[in-house]
Design a protein around this nucleic acid. Structure first.
Length: 476
RNA sequence: GGCGCGGUAGCCAAGUGGUAAGGCCGGAGUCUGCAAAACUCCUAUACGCCGGUUCGAUUCCGGCCCGCGCCUCCA
C-alpha cells in the first residue's frame, strides 16, 4: 500500500515512492537539544514521527531512521556552566533521560542517533566546501557566515520573497529589526562557525577559522548527508523548524552538492495546552513525569498525543487525557473479547509480529486513512467503527484469531499497548487485613459492619471492588 | 506587513457536491446488600458570517469576521 503525505516544499500531498529492491527509505528528523527534560510538545512531534516510522516499516518501505541529538548550543553551554558540569557530562545526563522517556512512550529506536559534538569534523569540512564555493565568508568578528544572497534557491521551502529577505526589515511584531549589532553582510545570513568567546569556556574546537563551535543549522546538513547520502527521502521536524532551520539546511547542503537535499519535507504542528502556547511562564509546560505523577498512564499520553492530525495544532487538556484513557479501555475490552473467543493468551497476542497483507485486510478503512496523509484521527474512527460492529461471540476461533493478528499490526503502527494490566500496587498488610474482615462481614450478611469497614478503608486511601467470589483493593 | 494553519454537537475530532465517522462526557436499563465494575441501549434543530456557481454546498469560488503559528538557533 502506498503512503500519501503532504510535502511542505511543493505544498501538495505527494505519494512516497513505492518501496523497491534493496532501497532503504532514508528519514532524517531533527531531534532534541538536550538541556533539560523534553516536554509533551516535543514528544508530540517525535511520536508522530514514530508512527510514520512504524507505518513505513509495516508497509515494507525499509525505513532508515536518523534522529540527531543537539548537544552544543547556547543553552547547553550556559546550563552546564551554571551546574558546574562539563558540557559532555551535562548533555549525557539529559540524553539518558530523553532515552528513558522515549522507551517509556514505546518509541522505536532510530537507526542512528548522531550527536553534534561527535561530528565536528564533518561540519568543518562542509563549511570549508561552502567557503571554497563562495557561499560563505568570515565576518569582521571572525565567525563564518552563510551568504544567503549567493544561493539562488534560498527561501524555496518557505516560499519567501527574496527581495524582502535582503533587508529582513520586520520582526515578529512587525517592528523594525535593529541589525547593526551584527557583523554579517546581510541580516538574513546565518552563522556556520561561531568564533570562541569567553563565555563559551572550554567548549571550542579547532577549525581553519580559529577555535570555535559550529552554528546550529550545519550539524543537521552534515550528519544527514553522512548517514543518508547527499539526497534522501524524507526530512521532518516541528513546524517551527521550517524556517529558518530547514531552509538553512537546504542552503548548506544543496549549495555544495547541487542536488536536492530531501525529496519530501514533513512538518508537524505544535501542541497547545488548554488553548494556549506552552511556556514556562504560564506554568503549562508538562514533561512526561509531570503527567505520570498525575496518575495518567503513559499509553494514555501516547494516545492523546497521536490522536490529532499532525497537520493541525493539537490542544492538549486533561480532559483529552481522560478521554484517551477511556478510549484505551474500550480497545482493551474489544481485544479481550476476541482473545476469549480465540482462546489466545494475552502474552501470545502481545508477542504477535506485525504482518500486513494488503489484499486480505480486515480493517481496510483504517489502512486507507492512515496511509492518506497519516490521518490518525480518521484511522482511529474507522478502527472503533470496525470494532463496534464485531460480534465476538458469533465468531469462530479462526476468525477471531485472524482479527487479532491484524489488530496486533494496527496497534503496532500506532505504537499502542492496549492490554491494560491490573494495578499491581503493593497493598499494606494492615489494609489487606481490614479488607479481609470486611469480606467476611459481608459474607455473614453483617452489612453494617461491612460498610463501616469500607469507610475505614476509604479514609485510609483504599477502595474495595467486589466481584462474585472475591474482591480487589485499589488505591483511591 | 510577509508566509502558513484552522473555525463541525457540552468537549475532542474525521469526512463528503445530495442533509454528517469516531472518541469522551451525559442519560436509561440489567446486575450487584451498598459502592464500583461489567453488559445492553440511547440522546443531540453541530458544519463561523455573507454572497456566488449548482437541481442541490458543510463540502467548489469570492469577500468578511475570529483564533493560532512562523518570520535570527523553540518540536
Amino acid at each position: 500500500m502506498q503512503i500519501q503525505l503532504s510535502d511542505s516544499l511543493t505544498r501538495s500531498v505527494k505519494p512516497l515512492p513505492v518501496p523497491e529492491g534493496q532501497h532503504h527509505f532514508g528519514v532524517y528528523c531533527c531531534g532534541p537539544t538536550v538541556y533539560g527534560p523534553a516536554h509533551i510538545g516535543n514528544f508530540r512531534t517525535f511520536l508522530v514521527q514514530d508512527v510514520l516510522h512504524r507505518l513505513l516499516e509495516v508497509l515494507g518501505y525499509s525505513p532508515y531512521f536518523v534522529r540527531n541529538i543537539t548537544d552544543v548550543d547556547d543553552k547547553t553551554i550556559r546550563q552546564s556552566q551554571q551546574e558546574g558540569l562539563s558540557l559532555q557530562a551535562f548533555t549525557e545526563q539529559w540524553t539518558k533521560i530523553f532515552h528513558k522517556d522515549c522507551t517509556h512512550l514505546n518509541m522505536l529506536l532510530p537507526h542512528e542517533e548522531p550527536r553534534a559534538t561527535a561530528h565536528i569534523e564533518a561540519q568543518v569540512s562542509l563549511i570549508q566546501k561552502l567557503m571554497d564555493k563562495g557561499y560563505a565568508y568570515q565576518g569582521s568578528d571572525g565567525s563564518v557566515y552563510y551568504k544567503v544572497d549567493a544561493f539562488a534557491d534560498y527561501g524555496k521551502l518557505n516560499h519567501l520573497d527574496r527581495e524582502a529577505l535582503q533587508t529582513q526589515s520586520t520582526t515578529s511584531s512587525g517592528s523594525q529589526n535593529q541589525a547593526d549589532e551584527y557583523d554579517r553582510e546581510c541580516v538574513a545570513d546565518f552563522a556556520l562557525w561561531k568564533l570562541h568567546k569567553e563565555e563559551d569556556g572550554d567548549n571550542a574546537w579547532e577549525s581553519p577559522w580559529g577555535k570555535g563551535r559550529p552554528g546550529w543549522h550545519i550539524e543537521c546538513s552534515a550528519m544527514a548527508m553522512q548517514y543518508l547520502g547527499e539526497t534522501f527521502d524524507l526530512h521532518g521536524g516541528g513546524v517551527d523548524l521550517c524556517f529558518p532551520h530547514h531552509e538553512n539546511e537546504i542552503a548548506q547542503a544543496e549549495a555544495v552538492t547541487g542536488k536536492p537535499f530531501a525529496h519530501h519535507w514533513f512538518h508537524i504542528a505544535h501542541l497547545m495546552v488548554e488553548g494556549q502556547k506552552m511556556s514556562k511562564s504560564l506554568g503549562n509546560l508538562y514533561t512526561l513525569s509531570d503527567i505520570l505523577e498525575k496518575n495518567f498512564s503513559v499509553m494514555a499520553l501516547r494516545y492523546a498525543l497521536i490522536a490529532g492530525h499532525y497537520h493541525q495544532p493539537l490542544n492538549f487538556t486533561f480532559d483529552t487525557l481522560h478521554a484517551a484513557s477511556s478510549a484505551l479501555e474500550k480497545l482493551d475490552k474489544g481485544v479481550r473479547a476476541l482473545l476469549k473467543q480465540a482462546s489466545m493468551d494475552e502474552a501470545v497476542f502481545e508477542g504477535l509480529k506485525p504482518d500486513y497483507d494488503d489484499g486480505a485486510s480486515l480493517f481496510p478503512g483504517f489502512w486507507a486513512r492512515i496511509t492518506d496523509d497519516l490521518n490518525v484521527p480518521g484511522a482511529l474512527g474507522e478502527l472503533f467503527k470496525a470494532i463496534n460492529s464485531l460480534k465476538p461471540d458469533t465468531l469462530s476461533s479462526e476468525e477471531a484469531t485472524k482479527l487479532l493478528k491484524e489488530l496486533a499490526t494496527v496497534f503496532y503502527v500506532l505504537g499502542l499497548k492496549v492490554l491494560i494490566d491490573a494495578p499491581t500496587e503493593d497493598v499494606p498488610e494492615a489494609i489487606q487485613l481490614l479488607a479481609q474482615k470486611r469480606w467476611e462481614a459481608k459474607k455473614n450478611k453483617d452489612f453494617a459492619a461491612a460498610d463501616s469497614l469500607r469507610q475505614e478503608l476509604e479514609s485510609q486511601g483504599w477502595k474495595v471492588l467486589d466481584s462474585k467470589d472475591g474482591y480487589t483493593i485499589e488505591a483511591l
